[in-house]
Amino acid sequence: MTEESAGGIAKKFLYVNRRAPYGSIYGLESLEVVLIGAAFEQDVSLAFLGDGVFQLTKGQDTKGLEVKNFSPTFRALEDYDVTKLYVEKEALEARGLSAADLVVPVEVVSAQRMAEIMEAQDVILSF
């Protein structure tokens, strides 16, 4: 359906995540869009900038908050063919983190490379 409606050419969708999880609902509801959007067979990438990198950290335990821990869902993205996850290097380092601290394999990129990735998109969704 989407292939036809878009003239057979998939659009490049980028989801930009800049907020930490749990303090607000944006991270969770953004991920819900990614999961629904995966069915549309577009060219999907996720960018994690600034506090957005906190969404991906290992060891999240939300039992005390009585809210859903949505970090394991990032591991399921691969099943939806969403495999392009870009994390800003400077954001990780500034927060004392490295790729090894994250729940999924990501591509750690420089700000320069991230800017190029953003520039190449058709649709940028930020929440």
């Binding site: 989407t2 409606s5 878009a6 659009k11 969708f13 819900e32 869009v33 629904i36 959007g37 069915a39 549309f40 577009q42 058709d122 649709v123 940028i124 969704l125 930020s126 929440f127």
Partner: peptide, 20 residues
Amino acid sequence: SGLGQLIEAGIQADRLVVFG
């Protein structure tokens, strides 16, 4: 309606503009 409507808008429209 569902979130698919947002994705579809991204596909069909020439520009998607986010306000938040």
